[in-house]
Design a binder for these strands. Sequence first.
DNA 1: CCCGTTCGGGACCCTGCGTCAACTTGTCCT
DNA 2: AGGACAAGTTGACGCAGGGTCCCGAACGGG
Lengths: 214, 214
Amino acid sequence: MADPSSTTDTLARQKPGKREQTKANNRRAIIEAGRYVFAELGYGETTVRDIIRKTGLASGTFYNYFKSKEEVFQAIMDENALRVRPRLRSERIRAKNFEEWVRGMFFVFFDYVVNDQSNFRIIRRNTGALRVRMDTPEIIAGFDELQADLEKAVAEGIAPKVDIDYLSAAMIGIAFEMSDRLVLREDPSVEEATDFATTLLLNGLSALTEKDDA
Amino acid sequence: MADPSSTTDTLARQKPGKREQTKANNRRAIIEAGRYVFAELGYGETTVRDIIRKTGLASGTFYNYFKSKEEVFQAIMDENALRVRPRLRSERIRAKNFEEWVRGMFFVFFDYVVNDQSNFRIIRRNTGALRVRMDTPEIIAGFDELQADLEKAVAEGIAPKVDIDYLSAAMIGIAFEMSDRLVLREDPSVEEATDFATTLLLNGLSALTEKDDA
DNA sequence: CCCGTTCGGGACCCTGCGTCAACTTGTCCT
DNA sequence: AGGACAAGTTGACGCAGGGTCCCGAACGGG
């Protein structure tokens, strides 16, 4: 269908097409407006109208791109996940042993949270004490990767044989809840947090093994 | 009417008064309707109208009791916390040592979650992958109690001297995230989960001490 | 029994939601 | 180039929910 008869092969991508262009622009504009407004008002208080107003587009146009504010939020979270996952992946490769792997996972996560707080503020900035968290496809994929890694580590005997489901839950729970406290500190130290989480998990884990043998 | 108006002092509470009565009833009705509707539609999709409709009261009446659906949600969460905290407290007293204390905390929490899933389903049952969590005054008070206990334990030398803030965050994170997985299991074992969490935390913790010494 | 107070009822206005028909703009074909 | 068609934007519209407010009813004290 989108066949550019000439220059089909390598240069095809160079023909943006004005239509495609504005489409991409509009989508970006809406997402950026979403980031801004969510951070400003919190998820609950934000309306589709608030978002679209900030872009200057018409209300109807919004629905050409997203079904609801929830979808915008999801897109934002997905983008976040897409930024973190490559880092996690490279850390995963770099790791020479299990400890390095665990440390790497925590480090990347905490580092990201601290250095890109704007995205995480969204979750906090909510009237009252309401917190929202969304497990988007990308985020879930990230969790799955984590769990798969753990399974592989266990299969290879690198990590002790324990309940992988609970273990990954523990890792994720520790990471999220600690990052919450981390960003509240006046001088947040990623290293300190990473150290804490890594030591806790690693040694707790080795104890779980012994228990398993018994 | 031999109204015991005289017995004002000690027996005063025996005078319900029809006014007070319906007031209490209405409040209860709204909260119960809230429980039902939140569980049915999820927090996001629920409207004040949905709640009040289920009670048969008029829309205006709602606002005599709560300012918003958020306040109803908060009331529900507070009630939940009020159910768990006494159990946590008695477990706290029963505990003969630090291990028992940790185990007790996790056990009570997991046990509550499993046996009162209806309340926790509210958090999950949300369109898309949106999760809500509300830290109400009662819940925060519970967290504070936990943290205070940890501080005391550290001060008494029962528990190692570590970053209490992170430690309580880790406990809470583990508890919440694991409970999420726990309820999804076909045959959820509270003991198993408690064992896992307790062993993980306790031994991870002792490792943190050694690190501290070094 | 009567009056003051307190509260429930529901109409009312406002704002946001999602849709749709009319218009505008890019694209393709001759 | 120019016209015709497709794609996309616009904002008005109908509808539903949020929060308010005044009226009337029920309660409670004298």
